[in-house]
């Protein structure tokens, strides 16, 4: 978080880096004032669109405010919203769905991403072509990806159903990925994996490329088997990269909204209703502004706390 003292430090540093003549030209202002002048627009924007809404949300979460009835006024109701959120079985269901989504997308993508990176790092002929090709899904808009996967998942004409049907020897139209209560949670995991495995792959590849050849040569001379080289050199040296990628992706997937709305809108029933989809419903369909603010704050604190613990672990890995 940006505290006044770090801002001061930034201003100080900027002031020191400013040539004397600049300060003299803007009559009457000290170097530090000039420096503040330069960073003021950014800080104003940051306050207006990040900090203020956050604080305002915290305030609203303690009221019974409804955004569609703003004329009616609202009262301070203390922590009642929080109590209600934490006792709401729908909320717990939604968190379970989110956890399922985050855990499975991350596990599968780590394994696939690392595996692909490892293969591409072998520098075979045409590896840069394959790298570019694999990166394509990541560059598409989630709306586009969601839309065309709904076609791929079509029981009658969908390619996905056709391929699965062909290889599993079952009727392609006998199952509906997006319509089935058991399959839909996996359908969204598959699409997210298709779209974002390249991201993990890319970062793992950077990690693998950062390991100099001579380390493997030294290990070779030290009689380390390929297996031991993999576990005692490759994995530990890529791990910090991998963990960073997982951090970014897990936070993103905790907030996942667009792709899944496009695919299932949270259905069938609510089996794919992720936290942010539920939140949007509560806030902008049911207009329970205070209640959903409380939920949003709880989510924020959870993600923030988890990310902090994770970053500590990451630093320990890096220091090892």
């Amino acid at each position: 978080m940006t505290t006044p003292s770090t801002l001061d430090k930034v201003a100080d540093r900027a002031a020191r880096a400013t040539p004397d003549s600049v300060a003299r030209r803007i009559g009457g202002l000290s170097d530090k004032a000039v420096a503040w002048l330069f960073i003021a627009p950014t800080i104003t924007l940051l306050l207006a669109i990040n900090i203020f809404p956050l604080i305002w949300t915290v305030y609203l979460s303690f009221t019974n405010y409804k955004a569609n009835r703003s004329a009616r006024g609202f009262q301070w109701i203390g922590t009642r919203n929080y109590e209600r959120v934490l006792n709401d079985s729908d909320i717990w269901h939604t968190l379970q769905v989110t956890a399922h989504f985050v855990v499975w997308t991350m596990s599968i993508q780590v394994i696939l991403g690392f595996g692909l990176a490892w293969l591409l790092n072998r520098q075979f002929k045409g590896h840069s072509f394959w790298t570019t090709l694999i990166l394509l899904p990541m560059m598409l808009s989630p709306a586009v990806v969601g839309n065309f996967w709904t076609f791929l998942y079509q029981p009658q004409i969908g390619l996905f159903n056709y391929v699965i049907g062909f290889f599993a020897g079952i009727d392609a139209s006998s199952f509906e990925m997006l319509g089935s209560v058991t399959l839909a949670p996996w359908a969204i995991v598959i699409v997210d994996t298709w779209m974002w495995t390249p991201y993990l792959m890319l970062i793992c590849l950077a990690g693998l490329r950062s390991i100099p050849d001579y380390i493997y040569e030294a290990a070779e001379v030290d009689r380390a088997s390929a297996w031991r080289q993999f576990w005692s050199i490759t994995v530990p040296m890529v791990l910090p990269f991998l963990m960073l990628a997982v951090l970014f992706r897990a936070i993103e997937n905790f907030k996942m909204f667009d792709l899944v709305v496009e695919l299932t809108s949270g259905g069938p029933g609510s089996v794919t209703e992720l936290a942010s989809i539920n939140l949007k419903r509560e806030a902008f369909e049911k207009w329970r502004t205070g209640y959903s603010s409380a939920f949003a704050i709880i989510l924020f604190v959870t993600v923030f706390g988890a990310a902090n613990i994770y970053v500590k672990a990451l630093n320990r890995v890096k220091q090892r």
């Binding site: 100099p212 001579y214 380390i215 040569e217 030294a218 290990a219 070779e220 001379v221 030290d222 009689r223 380390a224 088997s225 050199i233 530990p236 040296m237 090892r320």
Partner: peptide, 20 residues
Amino acid sequence: EAPSTRDVTFVFQQYSLYPH
């Protein structure tokens, strides 16, 4: 033969320690 079966050690010109 591969380096691992030759029973040699090598002090490299660049130190080549295991950085982690």
